[in-house]
C-alpha cells in the first residue's frame, strides 16, 4: 500500500512564480516549448492556467480520483489543450511532455522544503501519481481528437467520391473513383437510386474508369448495384472498362451477362441517347 501524503496547496501557491519559471526553462531546454505553431507567450499562459487549476483541484481533495468534481475544470482544460495541439499537428510525445516536464521544478521544490526523507518520498509518490494520471488524460484526449479528424476525413471522402451527374434528359452518370468496398458501394447505390427517383431518369451510366482494380468482390458489388437499378425500373450501362480490367474479369470467371458494358463513357452516352430515342418512337 503506497503512502499518500496530504498535499499542501499553499506551498505551490507561494512558489508559483518560481515553479512556472523552472517549468518553462525545462520545456525550453527539452526543445519542446513550442515552435512557430505556438508562441512562447501562449505556452506561458497555458502553463499558468494549468498551475492555477492544479491548485484549485488540490484544495478540493480527492487526490487519487481524477474523475471527481473538483478536477472537472482541469480535465476540461487538458482536453481543450490537447485538442488544440492535435489540430496544430503536434506529436503525442510533444503534447505529453508539456505536462511531464512540470515534475522537475516541482520535485526540486519538494526536496528543498521537505522535513525528512519519509515525508519526501510520500510527497513525491503522491505528486507522481497525480501528474501521471493528468498526463494520461491529456494523451487520451489527444488520441480521441486525432481519431475524430480521421473519421471526419473518411466521411468527407465518401461524399466526395459519389457525384451523380445529369448528362442528358433522363440520363444520369456516376463516375466512380477509388477502391470499391462494401461501405462505398452502399453509399453509391443509395445516392444513385435516390437521384433516379428524384430526376425520373430511365438510364444510369456507371463509369468505372477510376476504379484501380476489379476483383470478384468488386464485380459482385457492381452486379448488386445494377440489379437494384433494374428493380427500380431504370436501365444501367457500365462503362470505362480498361483493357487490363476486361482481361481480369474474364480470367476471374466473373459472369457479367445481362449487364450492358461499353469501353468508354462516350459510347455509353451514345447508346443511352439511342435508347431514349427508341423509347420515344415506340411511345408515339
Amino acid at each position: 500500500m503506497p503512502v499518500y501524503a496530504s498535499v499542501d496547496s499553499e506551498l505551490i501557491r507561494s512558489h508559483e512564480q518560481e515553479l512556472l519559471r523552472l517549468w518553462l526553462e525545462n520545456l525550453k531546454s527539452s526543445g519542446r516549448s513550442g515552435d512557430q505553431r505556438t508562441k512562447a507567450a501562449e505556452v506561458e499562459q497555458q502553463a499558468k492556467e494549468f498551475l492555477n487549476l492544479v491548485i484549485k483541484g488540490i484544495q478540493g481533495g480527492n487526490l487519487q480520483d481524477l474523475q471527481a468534481d473538483n478536477w472537472a475544470q482541469l480535465r476540461a482544460f487538458l482536453e481543450n489543450f490537447s485538442r488544440d495541439r492535435a489540430q496544430k499537428g503536434f506529436t503525442s510525445d510533444q503534447t505529453a511532455t508539456f505536462i511531464f516536464s512540470f515534475k522537475k521544478g516541482l520535485f526540486d521544490l519538494l526536496k528543498k522544503t521537505a522535513k525528512d526523507a519519509d515525508s519526501l518520498v510520500a510527497q513525491l509518490w503522491t505528486w507522481t501519481e497525480l501528474i501521471d494520471s493528468l498526463g494520461l488524460h491529456t494523451f487520451n484526449a489527444f488520441q480521441r481528437t486525432r481519431e475524430e479528424v480521421i473519421q471526419r476525413q473518411h466521411t468527407d471522402m465518401l461524399e466526395l467520391s459519389t457525384p451523380v451527374i445529369k448528362l442528358w434528359d433522363g440520363v444520369l452518370a456516376l463516375p466512380m473513383i477509388g477502391v470499391l468496398d462494401s461501405a462505398r458501394t452502399q453509399v453509391v447505390m443509395e445516392t444513385l437510386l435516390q437521384r433516379i427517383v428524384e430526376t425520373g431518369s430511365h438510364i444510369a451510366i456507371l463509369d468505372i474508369t477510376g476504379v484501380p482494380t476489379v476483383d470478384t468482390l468488386v464485380a459482385q458489388h457492381l452486379m448488386k448495384t445494377v440489379t437494384a437499378i433494374r428493380l427500380m425500373g431504370a436501365e444501367c450501362i457500365v462503362s470505362g472498362i480498361r483493357p487490363q480490367i476486361a482481361q481480369t474479369i474474364v480470367h476471374l470467371g466473373v459472369d457479367l451477362a445481362g449487364i450492358t458494358t461499353k469501353a468508354n463513357l462516350a459510347d455509353a452516352l451514345a447508346l443511352a441517347m439511342k435508347r431514349s430515342a427508341d423509347a420515344m418512337v415506340t411511345a408515339n
Binding site: 443509395e190 427517383v197 437494384a228 428493380l231
Partner: peptide, 8 residues
C-alpha cells in the same frame, strides 16, 4: 430505393 436495396 430502400426496397430495391433490400431485395438485392
Amino acid at each position: 430505393p430502400a426496397v430495391a436495396i433490400t431485395l438485392v
